[in-house]
Amino acid sequence: MITSLAEQLLLARDLVETGRDDRELARACAAGEVARVWPGAYVEVGTWRMLDPREQQRLRSIAALATRRKDGLLLSHESAALLWGLPTWGWPAGPVELVDPTARRGTSTARLRVRASPLHAVERASRSGLPVTSLDRTVADLLFSRSRVQAVVLVDHLLHSGLATREHLRVLLAARPAARRRRAAGWAVDFGSAGGESPGESVSRVLAHDARFVEPLLQVPFADGDGPIGVVDFAFPVPNDSGRLVLGEFDGDVKYRGATYRHGRTPEQVVQDEKEREDSLRALPATAGFVRWTRRDLADASRLTEKLRRAGVARRR
């Protein structure tokens, strides 16, 4: 997919090299035939409109690298994360990020950030023919530059997918003893869980923790006399009532719209199946309560806090 994206780019300099007028692309852009991805880089409008914001940002990163006149630059931080397939919470909307191993100082604008940083050979890699910081270097950069919540989203993904162990992440942190945000990065590594299956679940855990709710069990399977019911995202233990749990589910859009999750069902059928599944879960003797929340509730932590409180989720002392 990354290679095919790069092949879609139309570069003004390529026209010049073939003796054509590079203003052809500017005129095509004015006519609505192509979209300007980056100064000197365009893509057909139909292709651009089919890309989601994450793919559009990935294409901007590729275009920024392709149009730079200096050799030796690598995609880094968020831009490298997009090529490595690492998750974010929300659509990436910041500047394209590059690293220049030979520069003495970096430069930064609203659209492009170039950091000056030496790189060892093991910190360099290639993804689909594009120079990027290695996975380890990218992960370390993100842990020290992302917000606390975004860092947990990253750690959960790495642990769940098997791309890294907690011990390995601690080694990466230890290699930068004087780095800023070291404490926040270390907390994210300690708090991360292999049970976090999506960015929304990771954010939910952080917000619930900050509101002092009891630590939930993650991805808990349930069954009744008719057989398996399914796996529940969160199961909050009820203090002083052994075996009783308040069940919680984060409802991301993919649950109802994603083709992979629906398995050929219509969104309406998914809703009906989820309702029947919830009824079965509520009927279990161990269920002390049931609560659902969405991205909207995560945008305002007080909304999630109120939903968990009403469902009877206990708080830590």
Rank of each mutant, 00 (worst) to 15 (best):
T294S: 08
L82D: 00
A64F: 02
E276W: 14
P216M: 05
V96W: 00
D136G: 05
L217T: 10
V254L: 15
S134Y: 06
E33G: 13
L51Q: 02
D241H: 14
A164N: 05
S193K: 01
A301T: 14
S76F: 02
T3W: 01
H209F: 12
P118I: 08
T67V: 11
T260G: 13
D224N: 07
L51P: 00
D273I: 08
L142V: 07
V153D: 03
D251K: 01
L142I: 06
F222H: 10
L163M: 13
A63C: 04
T133N: 04
E215D: 14
R182F: 11
G46P: 09
E306M: 14
E249W: 01
R292L: 14
A64M: 03
I2T: 01
R20T: 10
L173G: 07
L154E: 03
A121F: 11
S76A: 08
L284R: 11
Q57N: 01
D251T: 03
T138A: 02
L245M: 10
E44I: 13
L73N: 02
L112N: 05
L65A: 03
Y256M: 11
D141C: 05
S204W: 09
T3Y: 01
V96A: 00
A184C: 12
L51D: 00
L218Q: 09
E201R: 06
S128A: 10
S134A: 07
H77N: 05
E278T: 04
T165H: 12
L308Y: 02
L247S: 06
V155N: 04
